[in-house]
Nucleic acid binder design. Structure first.
Lengths: 346, 346
DNA sequence: ATGAAAGCGCTAACAT
DNA sequence: ATGTTAGCGCTTTCAT
């Protein structure tokens, strides 16, 4: 790393002059044009880049600023980042304290390689989202230098914010049963964390309890296209003779693709199977699709709020032990599946 | 701001011991439990937070890291942030150099208050998105200490990345004309930058040239709900007797709301007016809606790539003067409006 | 078991 | 027109 000192040596001049020139104050300090040119030339030649840490330290700016890292897996879930990020931002805005939120995209199973997390030299605390099984294992085995909050994951010794995943699935099953469905299919990506398995498990358990026959599952990609292709394919094969009465989708995106595929094949209005998704996309997209999408709503913004509070609580020392928060979820009936009736209460 | 030194004074001990204890190295350095407790107590009492700048500087971590700020207006456009952010991220990933991308949400007309931009102590360069007229005025009047690239805006003395906004509107008008439309409406939010005005202006000019009658405009909110409400309202009033043949929407979101409103009112298939939107949302949403949405595609990811290149070029000194890049746009016909035929070639 | 001192890279006050 | 020096807050090495 090239420093101002090295440029000074190179040019044969003091480092303060270099600082003045590179800081754009050459005119007011009346540095000779010759010197300026030599300095700029050397800086360019050596590829000088100012060290931001030194600048901030010296300038005192951001000294009492809290830096919070948000780790988000950089894969198909990337597009779901916004709702969560915006939730964090909104909550931070309400805080008196100045907080800088920094996104750290990471690759699943490689969380351990993130220096920001392990060195403690970049941020005061971290919120980790989308951790894989391996990432959780790493966390459990490691004593990190900064407080951490897990989003949508459970891990020994860590604060976390979750929803009742079993119940998410159960709510969908109950709604289907209430609407008189007898057979149901599941459309989901291969599970990358326990919560997903639990959602599907809860769906199965509760469904069977209400006489719902649940068809064998086959995984699809977690995207609109993934849902579309999965349904298109099934319509030509397993579902050629007989459609299921209901379809439970692992994400809003999958559900929107499914809607489109059903529509293309002529299954609209009464002929469309009942559809419920885990509502993890933007609410408006679900509320204004054709038909609008019934969801078990994932309260991401509320979860983000809790994450911030857990982070601040730990930094303040108000929260000393691993504390887990479980947020309530609810079924939001729209056109793609009617409301809970008989099984509404619990 | 509380420092380690103050804690040391408070406890009556040297600052190095404090550092050791707060750094979690008390055990290996055999600091007495009494001292540890006193230190922790004082730290908590005074509300100590480590200064990250000092830590990074001392630790040497991230010394040659490039910090790039992305300024994004924190309003209705927030949800469009993701595509651009992801484009930047993707391009950064291809770069050999380590770059840290930091999002700075800001409020329109208040860009001038951002210290990160004016102090130069936080980032090496900035990409400014969604600047308002006042923000542009501020930029034009100010000599900033770091290189800046403007996204989708033009400003004297600044590098920028744009598309031909007049042509965006013109393409839509041509497509409508090609599809035999005679009357067209515009559905857009009130313009917050010149580009939006140009899009609408281009649409009008080209439309009139092809015999398209363009109905009087009334603004709506830039969201799905905004589009939905605008169309619902017009269907009860201006459009009660007679629908326009075509509707040009200022954003994908508006168009999806419009689709839903038309559908609810029974205007489907042939009865639905031709629809084209400025394609600024996630591509999948447009490609799989019912019907799928024809767009004049805004190449955000390509624009993000150019922004990064302009940033790096300026930092390297390869780009010394204000350089503007104009990216090509294209009309993507889908179900909501057919392809360009007669007017396809220019 | 604790303290003194040096130094990370930078800027600004104060010489000269 | 340029140089000397001090110090931002922190960690680490080396003494004691």
């Amino acid at each position: 790393m090239v420093t101002i000192k090295q440029i000074a040596q190179e040019v044969g001049i003091s480092s303060s002059t270099v600082s003045i020139v590179l800081g754009g104050k050459a005119a007011e300090r009346k540095i000779s044009t010759a010197t300026q040119e030599k300095i700029f030339a050397a800086a360019a030649r050596l590829g000088y880049q100012p060290n931001m840490a030194a600048r901030s330290l010296r300038g005192g700016s951001g000294a009492n600023e809290l830096v919070v890292a948000m780790f988000w897996a950089q894969d198909f879930r990337a597009s779901m980042m916004f709702r969560f990020w915006d939730g964090l931002r909104a909550e931070i805005e309400k805080t008196a304290r100045p907080v800088r939120l920094v996104i750290y995209p990471y690759v699943n199973d490689h969380l351990k390689e993130s220096e920001a997390l392990t060195s403690g030299a970049n941020c005061h605390a971290a919120i980790i989202c989308n951790a894989s099984y391996a990432d959780l294992q790493f966390l459990e085995d490691t004593q990190l230098p900064i407080p951490v909050v897990l989003y949508n994951r459970v891990c020994n010794g860590y604060c976390s914010v979750n929803v009742d995943d079993l119940k998410m699935g159960a709510l969908a099953a109950r709604a289907f049963a209430d609407q008189g469905c007898r057979t149901a299919a599941v459309l989901t990506s291969s599970p990358v964390f326990e919560g997903m398995e639990n959602r599907m498990h809860g769906f199965r358990l509760e469904g069977e309890q209400h006489g719902l026959t649940i068809l064998a599952n086959r995984y699809c990609e977690n995207s609109i296209r993934g849902g579309y292709e999965a349904v298109s394919h099934r319509l030509r094969h397993e579902w050629k003779q007989q459609l299921p009465d209901a379809v439970f989708c692992g994400s809003s995106a999958i559900a929107h693709g499914a809607l489109r595929a059903f529509c293309e094949a002529g299954y609209i209005d009464e002929k469309l199977p009942r559809l419920i998704a885990v509502g993890n996309g933007p609410e408006e997209s679900d509320a204004f699709s054709i038909p609008s999408l019934s969801v078990v709503y994932l309260p991401m913004e509320d979860m983000a709020r809790e994450c911030i509070q857990l982070v601040l609580g730990q930094l303040d020392g108000r929260i000393a032990t691993a504390e887990s928060r479980l947020l309530p979820i609810e079924y939001v009936p729209r056109e793609s599946c009617g409301p809970l009736t008989e099984y509404a209460a619990q």
